[in-house]
Amino acid sequence: MLTVRNLHARVAGREILRGINLEIMHGEVHAIMGPNGSGKSTLARVLAGHPEYEVTAGEVTFEGEDLLEMDPEERARAGIFLAFQYPVEIPGVNNAYFLKAALNTVRKQRGLEELDAMEFMTLVRERMKQLDMDESLLSRPVNEGFSGGEKKRNEIFQMAVLEPKLGVLDETDSGLDIDALKVVAGGVNAMRNADRAFLVVTHYQRLLNYIVPDQVHVLTEGRIIRSGGKELALELEEKGYGWLEQPVGG
């Protein structure tokens, strides 16, 4: 589904990604772990097409298409969803209105009929229930005044409504208490199927107890230095990142 080859990217003139290689197949869950500043979030944002990040080398194909040639909205319509580490507050834009506009754009791209208000509300209510979310959040402006946990839940809720092919979760677990973490993980697990893949970016192993990955990659200084099965996450939890890190400059 997703192939990343020798990806280099920089932001504000600083090189963050220094040759990422990654292959994600349909139905797989991959976890990216690594210390702060290793480039985990940069990788997530580059995949979503954040305009501040400049790709300087390498290639990314998604379902056979050149992802790097696509605008952020084209990537979303093609089936990539980024759950933001810091969801943006958008005063004055109604959550339900925004999500309906997004959903219908995505559906149009997939050759599906647009949903009318009734059909949309039915879908949305069902998804909110799964995530134990208060329906009043729908009528509020996007993320405005949401608690940290509500924002993260709202990301997963949007993902559940938009039903992407690839969900990229950027530290969705950070700042969540254990109950909220279970709810969020439950939402992701409910979406797992043979066609859909996930890339879960996290600093801690804890989330991976609930979203069990097929593969774990360790990212430091813009490169994947180790890949393995889910046991690798446990090992990291026990020993820290230090044991893997190669000394810089000898």
Partner: peptide
């Protein structure tokens, strides 16, 4: 315009012009 908000909307499939229009309309909203 808040560029982070523009990117957020685009990352959900909303086109650039529509994203900007939505945000301007929200600005005028109150």
């Amino acid at each position: 315009l808040d560029e982070d908000a523009v990117f957020y909307l685009r990352s959900r499939g909303i086109g650039l012009a529509e994203a900007r229009r939505l945000l301007i309309h929200a600005f005028a909203g109150d």
